[in-house]
Design a protein around this nucleic acid. Structure first.
Lengths: 336, 336
DNA sequence: TTGTACGCGTTATCAC
DNA sequence: GTGATAACGCGTACAA
């Protein structure tokens, strides 16, 4: 591998001079600068950022941890994060926890030893607190995205979960629904709790009592257990609408309904949080509370880099991104 | 930061002994091993992989470059790549070229200076050859995925592009279509060329002459110019079916048709390469030639790591992954 | 079983 | 303007 010394020898200068040319630091005569540059070209020299990281105590690498790489919300977020990172001079190390604490822990260990300069972190659940505490112990700056974690003081980019859920539920109520089910993520995840709260807000405001038997929880990354929904639909007074707490659950629910020949929206209205990527362009079907996923990533990295630069001095910052309700064909009046 | 020396001092041994404990190398008395381990725990020691990389001349990092991070095909591929990398003890550095050579070049430069151990590379086009040559000059092993590049000898994971396109087109012909258009990617991309060849194969075998006026090219990552399609549909003998060379183009085309009230499949059949992610679960609509995207990534990383381990000794390997045609509702008999 | 000396490629510091 | 030297944190080779 060609090193800074190889260049120095050929250019008949010291390694230090070469370093100064590379980094545009210090004063150098135009003549030697040109000469060194030419030789670097000739020898295809590329600085070794590993060595540089070692001495500078910074890697210029950021890490992004998401919980579901198959979910368009998170991939779009990743895209925003990458754009911001590149623009600010960082590389992005990429991780996917699948909502599993064990995978998340492995990833945190890796991140620690890689000495990334910061982490954009979408926690699997409240129990991620241990992992975040580990980052804090090691003074690795991080910013939370999408999900909050009780007990962890950190910069964060979040959506209007409560408001969005409220709006979606209110929309269903306006259409005439009174029996509205919620298919939620696990209550150990902040977004699930907030969306639940918004759902209840809307019910309360409209004088509809919350009915425990219309509430159901499962992992945000897969709708895998149809049995609770079976029970719900077998109720004497079954729901006429379902609020799914994210896109993946909505798609799961609609697949479930299709299998049972329950037409949407004729027999059942469905609304959800987050759009479904390409799908919505194919057939704009789902009524959704859309979040600016790209901005989640972009703003998150921006916050993170500012945090890195300001060290611990700056105070905690919370960026709250708006949610847009988009009404489409999956919601309609209840069957008569 | 706590270093190997801090541990050594506290444990009253040399740094070397600590290193041996960390790496399970050499013989160490159980007593000192335990003692060192305990102290590492106490002090929250995490080895600095930057320093380790510098001396071992390997980073245990792989890099994945894809062309469209919003495309479910590539994100699923990324997921497979990440799983394989983790399993084999590597981290994954993540990059997205947006099909742009300029972004690809920046990314290659970054990869070079980061000294990753290898790159899983989905090239933007044939012109990526320069970038790949740069990797070769610097002896960075790489494996191509999805797309081939003429003139570059490298391990590669590809799909059955020609066969898949042939099958899709044949399916349309069997349904009775004779005027079948192709909305293709740019012919500077190998997959576009191969899918075109498969399309023509099917036409020829069935005695249908290839008609230049039914052929159209645009970037694989966005269907952005409706004008050529306008012209095509204004033809005296317009197409009754469209073969879109990937999922993004298919979605674009269907959106276009919807805007003009051209019903699919009643007035126009549409078939395409690659599935559309969540969308297809929502409403299994598109007839597609589905590729095992996850396997693309998984096998790609596996090949890459084998290549890294065998250095230059092993011969070139080509992994060809099967394509499944899935017939759904977007294709039907031509209008009478 | 454990330790010493050195090198990995770069930059910071200080001297000239 | 430019250079010599030390240091970043760790592993290898060799010695004890």
């Amino acid at each position: 591998m060609v090193t800074i010394y190889d260049i120095a020898k050929r250019a008949d200068v010291s390694a230090m001079t070469v370093s100064r040319v590379i980094n545009n630091s210090g004063r150098i005569s135009p003549k030697t600068r040109e000469k060194v540059k030419r030789i670097m070209e000739e020898m295809n020299y590329v600085p070794n950022s590993t060595a540089r990281s070692l001495v500078k105590q910074e890697t210029k690498m950021l890490s992004l941890l998401i919980t579901d790489i198959m979910n368009p919300f998170f991939t779009t977020l990743a895209r925003g994060a990458e754009d911001a990172a590149l623009k600010l001079g960082y590389k992005l190390l990429f991780g996917n926890s699948d909502e599993k604490l064990s995978k998340e822990k492995e990833y945190v260990d890796m991140v620690l030893s890689t000495r990334v300069d910061g982490v954009l972190f979408a926690p699997a659940s409240d129990e991620s607190a241990d992992h975040l505490a580990a980052l804090q112990r090691h003074r690795i700056p991080f910013v939370l995205v999408d999900r909050d974690v009780p007990g962890i003081e950190a910069d964060i980019v979040v959506g209007e979960n409560r408001e969005g859920a409220d709006r979606l539920t209110s929309h269903l109520i306006r259409l005439g629904h009174r029996r509205i089910a919620i298919v939620n993520g696990l209550s150990t995840v902040s977004t699930a709790r907030e969306r639940f709260a918004g759902y209840v807000d809307a019910l309360n405001r409209n004088g509809i009592p919350f009915d425990e038997s219309l509430s159901l929880e499962c992992g945000f990354n897969r709708f895998d257990d149809p049995e609770p929904l079976d029970r719900m639909l077998a109720l004497p007074d079954p729901p006429t609408a379902i609020f799914a707490a994210n896109n993946v659950l909505a798609v799961g629910v609609i697949g479930y309904l299709r299998d049972r020949n329950i037409g949407v929206p004729d027999l059942m209205s469905v609304a959800c949080f987050e759009d479904v990527g390409l799908a919505s362009a194919l057939d704009p079907f789902l009524t959704v509370a859309m979040q600016p996923a790209y901005e989640f990533g972009y703003q998150g990295v921006k916050l993170l880099v500012e945090r890195i630069r300001s060290k611990d001095t700056a105070e905690r910052r919370i960026v709250r991104l708006p949610t847009d309700m988009i009404v489409r064909r999956s919601t309609g009046r209840p069957p008569v």
